[in-house]
Amino acid sequence: MSPGNEKEIIKRIRDGETEAFSALLRQHQDKVYSLIAQIVSSHEDAEELTQDVFVKTFKKISSFRGDSAISTWLYRIAYNTAISATRKRKQVFINLEEKVLNNIPDEVVDDLLNLENDEKLLQNIKEAIEKLKPDEKALISLFYMQGRPVNEIASITKLTPDNVKVKLFRTRKKIAVLINQAQYEAR
């Protein structure tokens, strides 16, 4: 769907044509669901939260000014909704000390995260991702899975682009540390 097309759809929704929302929903539902499922780690909760996100979007559509793409705005609503839901659950996440993260050289992280044919490693990465904090999961999901540029991720998460880069870098390191720990425990 082109940006011009999306503007036309938004105009129709604002003019009272509710059915026009269907096109917007079809276009974004899978990606929004995927992002939320990654953050909350529960498919049932993710489905409910995705519904909430689209109802919120419909309610707020008259306040959408068009400064950013509709997808950015939609992702921002999805990100905030999912993060709020995880806060309510009060889950405990692993906090790694700065020292531990600094102990692992960048080259080791680069090498480790590029071994794409090692099935055991892929399983370890999957388990490491599950142990990340919700905002860290959101960052890697937006960057690696959805292919969003850093500037857009900054707009979605309300961080600066530099902060996004730093957080992504640290999250990669955290994944590498968690993989090393898992491999050490398996021996």
Binding site: D110, L112, L115, E116, L122, I140, Y144
Partner: peptide, 9 residues
């Protein structure tokens, strides 16, 4: 790059 991370995701 991070091919393994991309593949997992």
């Amino acid at each position: 790059q991070d091919k393994a991370l991309r593949k997992t995701l």
